[in-house]
Design a binder for these strands. Structure first.
Lengths: 145, 145
DNA sequence: TCCCAATAGTTACTATTAGTAAGTAGGAAC
DNA sequence: GTTCCTACTTACTAATAGTAACTATTGGGA
């Protein structure tokens, strides 16, 4: 029985992202990455060109765009097609494997967008508490047991 | 109507992670992070101590553990409780807000664990193709249009 | 004829971030 | 009085990300 078959049957395998030696840890590193999340989100619906991806992903440099696209291609998540035209034309599209990752990644992007106000409020509260602790140290959050 | 109410009604707001100036971009940066994914996964079920979190998260240093926990606390995703005992005892637990993020993050961890074999295969194929391209450059993946 | 525009990069350099290893506190046990 | 415990800091180094300038190719315009 392959590991994949075991996974489908929900039998635990050796794959475990909490183990630093496991290849899944490297994978988590790759996909738990802001540029990967944003780029796969853009390619979810349609094929796009290099320059379009750069324009639509605010703040990404050419270097990071190339680097991230190259990694995603190597991992089999996107496909790169070069057209022999001048000026050059290179199109990127999502693969079936990449498509299985779109929904999970979209979920965390959407989470950011829907919960940002609660997070900003928590940050303000934390910073305020930090300030008052500077005046009166060690009076907060300590439990005497 | 608040942005959150708009979000609940699925009305588009100004929040957009593709805009580099948007606070949601910073948020995406925080949660699209391997240590955050792993730590929130550990805290999903139970409160844990600093040393336990370090033991269960392979390869994390004390510095990164402190740093990541501090960020998650500031963002309101986890809670930190200090007990006035010797030796010190500090417990970390997930907040209701953090709990809403557990499932999305678990999904990408699980994706890594269930699709790793396909990714490893894609990587081998890519590396092999790269090698053969070195022998015969520019014969692959180019479309003449 | 010479120069510029357009696309998809690469490269060299700098800044930021992550990782490593050693140090700190304060009391309890030996 | 020396060591141990936990949960950190801090100083230093290594790796990664960001910035900006450079490249190839060729069609079109002055």
């Amino acid at each position: 029985m392959s590991d994949q078959e075991k996974n489908e049957l929900n039998i635990s395998t050796s794959w475990n992202a909490y183990n630093e030696q496991c290849p899944t840890r490297l994978m988590l590193n790759r996909i738990a990455d802001k540029w990967a999340v944003l780029l796969l989100g853009l390619l979810e619906r349609e094929t796009k060109r290099f320059s379009t991806l750069q324009r639509e992903t605010g703040g990404i440099s050419q270097k990071m765009l190339t680097q991230t696209l190259r990694s995603l291609e190597r991992d089999g998540l996107i496909q790169r097609t070069v057209y022999a035209s001048v000026p050059p034309k290179v199109e990127y599209s999502i693969t079936p494997l990449g498509f299985t990752l779109v929904a999970p990644l979209a979920a965390i992007r959407v989470w950011s967008e829907t919960h940002i106000e609660e997070v900003l409020a928590a940050q303000s509260a934390y910073d305020k508490a930090q300030d008052s602790e500077k005046q009166q140290p060690n009076v907060r959050k300590i439990v005497f047991n």
